[in-house]
Computed example of a mutant assay.
Amino acid sequence: MKAAVLKQFGSSLTIETVPDPALATGEVVVDVAAAGVLPYAAEVFRGERQYLLTLPVTPGSGAVGRVRAVGPDATRLRVGDWVLCDPTVRSRDDALTPDITLQGLSARGQGGLRLQEHFGQGSFAEQLLVPTENVFPLGAIEPADAGLWCALPLLLVPYGGLLAAGLQAGRTVLVSGATGNFGSAAVAVALAMGAGLVIAPGRNGKMLAELERRFGSRIRTVPLSGDEDTDRERMRGAAPGPIDIVLDLLPPSAGTTPVRAAVMAVREGGTVVLMGGVGMLGGADLGLPYPWIMRNNVTIRGQWLCPREANTRLIQLTRAGLLDLR
């Protein structure tokens, strides 16, 4: 089969002929119809993000395609089924703290690198080998819409954060980093899950206007000034009542000031979920005040990616017409 291969960081991808995947028990081979491209892919390919990625590699994180072959332990998947391929591969020998690799993108620690030896090749190829548990039926779709369904791996990231926050219908959510790729996806997912209002702060005025155009009266945008206290009051003032949940998705290039401004806008008893990349490339720590967290009963948790069942739930949200992939 043909695949796009990254041979060394900083080089261009090259289209090459590579061996077809060899199917084994617990695995599925999928004919790739479409694969999304992350907006920071070039940073990964240049080595700037310092991700654990063994070269040479076929990049590509997640795909939509049709089942080509299944192992003997698959009882419901059929050849030809349209499926979503989740790139988050977890080891099977530790239920509490499994090692993780993201196909064609990165790994977590040495255990993740071991997983990468077998499941590391990504979706920029004609065929993709994935664990059976990472394949999720989509039902019938039009072949021309395969690229549209590739929005799901992007949307799954903030969906994992909002599930971790326990979002309930009618709640007010603040998305820190709302004008970015994952942040704007979070706005869409929060509204699909029933958020009563989403507060969307950002510096990009054009994108803030675009969010208002797309999502209407259930979103309130907040232009950021760069002053922490001023921005916090603007965020609070944009909501008609207390802010229940803050979800941070700012990238590694962002500083801590807008994160702290957003986090400390949450109400007493509120929940903060940190999913962004601030600090990953060095720089100052977030530095939240202990007395504020304790006296306001604030829950702060980190969330990396999403639980496996989130794939099925998100497909159901889409099929129900609550989430518009366009």
Rank of each mutant, 00 (worst) to 15 (best):
A254I: 15
L247I: 10
E142L: 15
G170N: 09
R236L: 13
S253R: 13
R214C: 09
V175T: 00
G177Q: 07
I245R: 00
R220M: 03
L162R: 04
R232Y: 04
L152G: 04
G120D: 12
Q121K: 09
A239G: 05
L167R: 01
R171W: 05
L128R: 00
Y159A: 11
A190G: 05
A192V: 15
T221H: 00
D248T: 09
R234M: 12
M193W: 03
R232G: 08
P201L: 02
T179Y: 02
A190I: 05
P158D: 10
G177A: 08
S225M: 07
D248F: 02
A144E: 15
G205Y: 05
T230M: 11
V135M: 05
H118D: 13
A209W: 06
G170R: 06
V130R: 03
D244R: 07
R218P: 03
C150R: 02
A254P: 14
T179L: 05
L174C: 14
L148D: 05
M235V: 10
F215L: 06
R213T: 15
G255I: 12
A146W: 05
D244C: 10
A144R: 13
L128W: 05
E212M: 06
L138A: 08
M207K: 15
G160Y: 04
F182W: 07
R203A: 13
A178W: 01
Y159C: 08
P153D: 03
L247H: 01
G166M: 08
L163K: 15
I219H: 00
S123M: 10
R218Q: 14
N181Y: 08
R213H: 10
M207C: 10
R171D: 12
E210R: 10
L156A: 13
L152Y: 04
L174F: 08
L250K: 03
G255L: 12
Y159M: 12
F215D: 05
E233S: 12
L208C: 10
G160S: 08
T172S: 09
N181V: 14
P143E: 09
E117A: 10
P251I: 14
N181C: 08
I219T: 03
P242G: 11
A146T: 14
Q121I: 15
T257P: 05
P153K: 02
G216M: 04
G166L: 09
G170I: 11
P158T: 10
V187S: 00
I141R: 00
